[in-house]
């Protein structure tokens, strides 16, 4: 193909997109909406993955001390925890904090605890996090036999359950995204089919004055790519707005969830959305024009 033919084809794609501005706009909205849903899912998935990874990689356990221990004995246990390098971090929960936590958990029924302030009903405990969930059994075995430790609350079943859950969430959302992709392609192909249909006479004329299939097809593909790309960029802009807003709220209100920063997902997101937009636009054009080339 000669350079000026390539230029002509690209120009023709742009001009046609502009000339069919209403149709193009409708297509852009459809592409944008599909990609928006895709992008939102992508963002949610990225965060679910991130959180489950943190969770499974650093299982939490709580080590409860004997309620009768004095401060020195507690310090010995703290030292033991601190010196174990399989434990990545720990938090000490004092008796007072334990009581606060209990009150919080009881909510309206917290009056049952009144008058117990300052008494030794609740033990001091340590919340520990491990580097590697594989070590959890060893750590439990070691800590639970240590004098002064009442029990270590941890369960292999919980961890198994969580990792099973994570697998299901991943498989499920993968399938959902796949389904959305297919739906997007179908919708976009149909929208471009409308454009092609409204121009079938033109295509027919081109065939009769000796245009090759590629010469006819390429401007439509350019048009599809423009639509896909513009749709992708718009949806990315909207996702950006939504994400900033929603992630800010989640960070402030749901303390146990960690939220990825926008810039941590944007580069992958914009790349995949644009790529999908371009591919889907090109594919949609190709599919929709095929029938009309057989003259």
């Amino acid at each position: 193909m000669k350079l000026r033919t390539a230029k002509y084809i690209v120009k023709e794609g742009f001009v046609n997109t502009y000339r069919n501005i209403l149709m193009s706009f409708a297509s852009i909205v459809v592409v944008g909406a599909s990609l928006l849903v895709f992008g939102v899912f992508w963002a949610i998935m990225a965060n679910i993955n991130y959180n489950t990874r943190i969770f499974t990689e650093q299982p939490e356990m709580e080590v409860f001390c004997n309620p009768e221990l004095d401060d020195a004995q507690i310090t010995t246990i703290e030292w033991l925890i601190m010196s174990d390098d399989r434990i990545s971090e720990y938090t000490i929960i004092s008796k007072e904090e334990a009581l606060e936590r209990a009150k919080e958990m009881l909510g309206d029924d917290k009056s049952v605890l009144e008058g117990f302030e300052g008494e030794d009903i609740l033990p001091v405990s340590f919340i520990i996090k491990l580097d590697n969930p594989g070590n959890s059994k060893d750590v439990v075995d070691k800590l639970s036999v240590f004098p002064g430790v009442d029990n270590v609350r941890y369960s292999q079943e919980t961890i198994d359950l969580i990792s099973k859950l994570v697998r299901w969430i991943r498989a499920g959302s993968g399938m959902l995204i796949l389904m959305l992709l297919v739906i997007s392609i179908v919708i976009i192909a149909n929208t471009i089919k409308l454009t092609v249909f409204s121009r079938r006479k033109e295509i027919n004329i081109m065939k009769f004055i000796g245009a090759t299939d590629w010469f006819i097809r390429l401007p439509f593909i350019v048009e599809g790519v423009i639509i896909g790309l513009v749709g992708a960029l718009i949806s990315f802009g909207v996702i950006n707005l939504i994400y900033t807003e929603v992630s800010g709220r989640i960070i402030n209100s749901v303390y146990f969830l960690k939220v990825l920063e926008g810039k941590e997902i944007y580069s992958d997101l914009i790349l995949s959305i644009s790529l999908i937009g371009v591919l889907v636009g090109a594919l949609g054009s190709t599919v929709s024009i095929r029938k009309h080339l057989r003259v």
């Binding site: 002509y8 006479k201 004329i205 004055i209 000796g210």
Partner: peptide, 20 residues
């Protein structure tokens, strides 16, 4: 069978663009 979106000149020109 003229292309409705093209001017008279462009319609004729088109047949030559096709042949590069």
């Amino acid at each position: 069978r003229l292309l409705p979106n093209k001017t008279v000149y462009e319609n004729v020109e088109f047949a030559m663009q096709i042949t590069e």
